[in-house]
Nucleic acid binder design. Structure first.
Lengths: 124, 124
DNA sequence: GGCTTTCTCAACCGATTGGTTGACAACAAC
DNA sequence: GTTGTTGTCAACCAATCGGTTGAGAAAGCC
């Protein structure tokens, strides 16, 4: 996934209004007018939010007379969780290994010359 | 999770520099100086990025003489994937149900008075 | 004490963001 | 054709963002 598309996706979901819109669209397609209805802001403002979501690839829009129904696209959501999960798992895997080291040091209490707490700080 | 904390978390990961920092920290704790080294920007700029990450709850910082080693916290990453996954799954579940409807209509080709494409657009 | 290292804070700057209002395009209904 | 509905575009505005430089706090080293 392109670097800046991931940035656009995270930027898009950084706004509570846009997250509300995504939540609404997860239940089914909706027009800008329907999406704007619950918010205390102009239709133009919601239209701008939809543009941000569309440019992030999170929604697509079709035509239907004057209406422009919006549809949630799940592919980019997948790529977002993939990114977040990758580094979360790397970190948690490291924590588990650290715990294992500490446990083995607990078993064998003779060696105390290393400090596993800072294994990541030390220079290569 | 508080609404604005989720906003802070997505905002934090919306910046490529901050995502790089998170990726680096997933491999192990590091000081601001170590984190700034690969970037073509001032240490002060990186320090600002770290503040954003800290306020989002994505990292924590300890003390160690003049050094302030940074540590990746995975809890907020968990909440981010939880949010994204919730709506992705809701949408995909709906798509699967829609496919099932279309398949059953394919079997029984006599009823054509309903248009499942717009099930979400209609008013409640 | 003085000097160096490491890092944060404060002030500033141009670009972007999230909202507004007004104009207007596209289409339906009469 | 005229009117009404739906939505976008353009211009504007205050606030925020991501960077800069300069000053200084906090700790170790001589």
């Amino acid at each position: 996934m392109a670097e800046d598309q991931l940035s656009r996706a995270f930027t898009a979901l950084a706004d509570p209004t846009r997250r509300d819109i995504v939540a609404r669209l997860s239940l089914g397609d909706a027009t800008p007018g329907q999406l704007a209805e619950p918010f205390a802001m102009s239709l133009q403002a919601v239209s701008k939010h939809l543009k941000v979501l569309e440019e992030a690839g999170l929604i697509s829009r079709s035509r239907e007379a004057q209406r422009r129904p919006c549809h949630l696209e799940t592919a980019v959501l997948d790529e977002m969780t993939a990114w977040v999960d990758r580094y979360r798992r790397t970190a948690e895997e490291r924590f588990r290994r650290l715990d294992a080291v500490l446990a083995s040091m607990d078993e064998d209490e003779s060696t105390e010359d290393e400090d596993p707490q800072h294994e990541g700080v030390a220079s290569p």
